[in-house]
Design a protein around this nucleic acid. Structure first.
Length: 869
RNA sequence: GCCCAAGUGGUGGAAUUGGUAGACACGCUAUCUUGAGGGGGUAGUGACGGAAGUCGUGCCGGUUCGAGUCCGGCCUUGGGCACCA
């Protein structure tokens, strides 16, 4: 048999056509098999696949293919997060409709994904902009309205006064509208919210059970939820002498440090606090009104001092509050360092124990009382650490924890206050004043108010064939679209013209994949597949998407649709794809960023990079920082070009080999070349073995030492690769282990019948070990090795533990912790025998002669350390 | 400012439980092969040193027979939060 050259393009097209025609990756529920649901975050159809996608989806594909070879029923779906602002921008730019642009992108990107050979069940594919998808989201929302979990309240938006439209945060550039250039205003308009705060406690405690989620993600979510325990209590308005008038108002404050209440020297209301104007004295009225007008206007950057703290601006209201702990009045201020959106919008200020209060007290000449004893030599300002209570009457002498407890118990027994838990987490605002999104299914009746669209009128379909002017949403501009009648009383009514935040669609797509075609949001099939066994996506989604995803799953669970408590058991967040940048600073002060493909690197004779030049003009360019691939830095590498040149297997191999999945991956053209070289070598070596003809049966008992060593290496490699892919998810070291074994095979020259039998075992192992990573070439080699059936459906190679046993082990000999010799010993040798072998080594005795051996540490079959002085 | 990662050859990275630092790959050097280009083979490649050897995982200190790994302090880079009482 002749050896043909490695021709990846020919191989890949042929193999993919077969997978396609045999529907290899389509799956159904099968209770006889263990299921495995592997999900990669669905892409936004921006137009073309980038390296970040390739990396994300290759990781998911490797895990899926590995799990399938373990015999599991593996679901790996793919779809499109199709709503969103970029489609509106593109529609304006290209004078088309957002829907048309989006569908064209999906067509294009689907082909690109298919060219990479990912094992997706395409029969489950959907785009989130399809009415068949979003109708269930609308139905769910109406149910949430019924349950009171969706509600409407006023909220601030960015308003462009020229374009007469709401702007997303990213459309506001330096305080101005991105198109009109007009100064953006803040406006309060009614918007819909989901009560995620009702689930704050469960979202927090649930993190403790997510053992296979990265700590970094869990920490970020914990901080975002921001649970804090403390006390809330009322303080009555009083006069300067502490006298409380009949029917005086009371101000509720929240504190995590009730133990410090004796050190309260003033109190503060947020500028938006409803009691501000009521309590403000006549004398202070003008100042307070002036402050409220200007509060929050100055940008944060302008108000930040060199030390990084914000100015503590505020003004005295002239009113006093009665401190129930001391029975004395404290002056009441308003200040913008107190936020209306957290706690009660009012605080007791204790400058001795809170740095913000300290800063404010210093700026406004307010007294400072320490209520926790500071350590000797303390030179700081506010003291927030643990310590003994002082100046606190009946709390004196207690530690912070005990004092807190006693203060809270006192507040409760006196009926002044109660224990209270507050969260930083806010309810999820889901209204967007955009066109290209799922219409919010609500009808406003002049008599009945806001009503959910009845189920039989769903879906509320977003018209797709629109002329998109960019100034305003077509459904807001169209007076006809919104016209409807009240489902309750039948009078003329109007539809909501806002659409949902696109995070809504990505919060439940994982469940819809499990119930294709269901005449409901999901059906029973979802409980077969869920929870997701492995979820893969970018760390940039650590907070928002992954929080909403968990929240929405709980909403679906509580609606009786799903059984599990959490949507995904294991999470892997892949790192960024980065590349070198090249720049030229132009004479006019601007910078040109040059693509790596157009630049040649220059090195010295040790291979160290000493410069770079542009290929087109031969003149030098500056080497910039290594940064995330982006259009702005022109350092992107197009995966499609690489696939055309080297094949999908090479691109997949390099992206898995260059670094572990959770670290950033530095792109390198020569690294891609190296991956290609490895596959070509694999091809030539294994087809060479095949060309040498049939192989006789392996007889393990007849192997000589070298054959045994080779076979041991094969089974050590199988064990390592299994562990690296399955448990550690360090695909780079798995590949390195296969490369090492391949190098061993290359050096192995004996072609006796039993050697060829061992080599045959080795090649069949390698082809299966590499199959999840480079499936096309492995599929082809598997056939050529004379195996029937697709490697996709073949069992993962098993480890023969007997083959891994060693006749001799290498024991490392140290003297005083320094390596001095290595000796070959039978495994299981005891300390005495190890010592005899060690003392026979001249390099050891040279370092022990004339010294007393104080101690010998022996780690069986590993190491002997002789301590001699 | 607070919280979380990370820092190892010329480069990407390996060292999984405290036990041989630098696997694997890139790059580079020499050499062979080829008409050339390309590709491939072989050998070498942490630093210093002729060698024996010594030093070496951001810096300073500690624990230990033994530290890249653990502890304390600091520096740098990346990420998150950012007046949340």
């Amino acid at each position: 048999m002749d050896q043909s050259p490695y021709n990846p393009l020919e191989i890949e097209v042929r193999v993919q056509a077969r997978w396609d025609s045999q529907k290899t990756y389509e799956v159904t529920e099968d209770t006889d098999k263990e299921k495995f649901y592997c999900l990669s975050m669905l892409p936004y159809p921006s137009g073309a696949l980038h390296m970040g996608h390739v990396r994300n989806y290759t990781i998911g594909d490797v895990i899926s293919r590995y799990q399938r070879m373990l015999g599991k029923n593996v679901l790996q779906p793919m779809g499109w997060d199709a709503f969103g602002l970029p489609a509106e921008n593109a529609a304006i730019k290209h004078n088309t409709a957002p829907a048309k642009w989006t569908y064209a992108n999906i067509e294009h990107m689907r082909k690109q994904l298919q060219r990479l050979g990912f094992a997706y069940d395409w029969s489950r594919e959907f785009a989130t902009c399809s009415p068949d998808y979003y109708r269930w989201e609308q139905l769910m929302f109406t149910r949430l309205m019924d349950k009171g979990l969706a509600y409407r309240k006023d909220s601030e938006v960015n308003w462009d006064p020229v374009d007469q439209t709401v702007l997303a945060n990213e459309q506001v550039i330096d305080g101005r509208g991105w198109r009109s250039g007009a100064v953006v205003e803040r406006r309060n308009i009614p918007q819909w919210f989901l009560r995620i705060t009702d689930y704050a406690d469960e979202l927090l405690s649930g993190l403790d059970d997510l053992d296979e989620w990265p700590e970094a993600v869990k920490t970020m979510q914990r901080n975002w939820i921001g649970r804090s325990e403390g006390a809330q209590f009322g303080m009555q308005v009083c006069d300067a002498n502490g006298r409380i008038a009949e029917g005086a108002s009371s101000v509720e404050v929240f504190t995590t440090r009730p133990d410090t209440a004796f050190g309260m020297t003033y109190a503060v209301l947020a500028p938006e606090h409803p009691l501000v104007m009521e309590v403000t004295s006549e004398a202070q009225r003008q100042q307070v009104e002036e402050f409220i007008r200007t509060a929050g206007l100055a940008s944060e950057a302008d108000r930040t001092s060199a030390e990084g703290t914000l100015d503590k601006r505020g003004v005295n209201t002239g009113a006093f509050l009665y401190n129930p702990f001391t029975s004395k009045p404290v002056p009441l201020y308003i200040a913008d360092y107190v936020l209306m959106g957290y706690g009660t919008g009012a605080i007791m200020a204790v400058p001795g124990q809170d740095q913000r209060d300290w800063d404010f007290a210093m700026a406004h000449d307010l007294p400072i009382v320490r209520t926790v004893k500071v350590p000797d030599g303390w030179e700081g300002e506010a003291y927030v650490e643990d310590g003994v209570a002082i100046n606190s009457d009946w709390l004196d002498g207690l530690g912070v924890a005990e004092a807190k407890e006693k203060a809270m118990a006192w507040l409760e027994s006196e009926g002044i206050g109660e224990r209270k838990v507050n969260f930083r987490l806010r309810d999820w605002g889901v209204s967007r004043q955009r066109y290209w999104g799922c219409p919010i299914p609500v009808i406003y009746c002049p008599d009945c108010g806001a009503l959910p669209v009845p189920e039989d009128q769903l879906p509320v379909v977003l018209p797709e064939d629109v002329t998109f002017m960019g100034v305003q949403s077509p459904i807001k501009a169209d007076p006809e679209w919104r016209k409807t009648t009240c489902p309750k009383c039948g009078v003329d009514a109007e539809r909501e013209t806002d659409t949902f935040d696109t995070f809504m669609e990505s919060s439940w797509y994982f469940a819809r994949y499990c119930s294709p075609g269901a005449d409901a949001m999901v059906d029973e099939r979802a409980n077969y597949w869920l929870p997701v066994d492995q979820y893969i996506g970018g760390i940039e989604h650590a907070i928002l998407h992954l929080m909403y995803f968990r929240f929405y799953h709980k909403l679906m669970r509580d609606a009786g649709m799903l059984k599990a408590d959490e949507p995904a058991t294991r999470l892997l967040c892949q790192g960024m794809v980065v590349a070198e940048t090249f720049r030229r600073d132009n004479a006019d002060g601007s910078t040109s960023w040059l693509n790596p493909a157009d630049v040649e690197i220059r090195r010295d004779e040790k291979g160290k990079i000493i410069g770079a030049k542009l290929l087109s003009d031969g003149l030098p360019v500056e080497i910039g920082a290594i940064e995330k691939m982006s259009k702005s830095k022109n350092n992107g590498v197009d995966p499609v070009h690489l696939v055309e040149r080297y094949g999908a297997d090479t691109v997949r191999l390099f992206s898995m080999f260059a670094s572990p999945p959770d670290q950033s991956l530095e792109w390198s053209d020569s690294g891609v070349e190296g991956a290609f070289r490895f596959l070509r070598r694999l091809w030539f070596m294994s087809t060479g073995h095949i060309a040498a003809g049939a192989v006789e049966a392996l007889d393990v008992s007849s192997l000589d030492a070298e054959q045994k060593t080779l076979r041991r290496h094969v089974h050590d490699t199988i064990a390592k690769v299994s562990d690296d892919i399955g448990r550690r998810q360090t695909f780079n070291t798995a590949i390195a282990a296969v490369m090492e074994l391949t190098n061993h095979l290359g050096r192995y020259e004996d072609r006796s019948p039993q050697s060829r039998a061992v080599l045959d075992e080795a090649w069949k192992a390698i082809v299966r070990l590499m199959a999840p990573i480079t499936p096309h070439v492995c599929e082809t080699l598997w056939e050529m090795l004379g195996e029937t059936g697709s490697v996709v459906n073949t069992a993962w190679p098993g480890v023969d533990e007997a083959a891994r046993e060693r006749d001799m082990i290498t024991l490392v000999i140290q003297v005083n912790g320094k390596l001095r010799a290595r000796v070959e010993l039978a495994p299981g040798s005891d300390k005495e025998n190890a010592m005899i072998a060690a003392m026979a080594e001249p390099n050891v005795t040279r370092h022990t002669d004339g010294k007393t051996i104080r101690k010998v540490i022996h780690i069986a079959d590993k190491l002997l350390n002789i301590v001699a002085t």
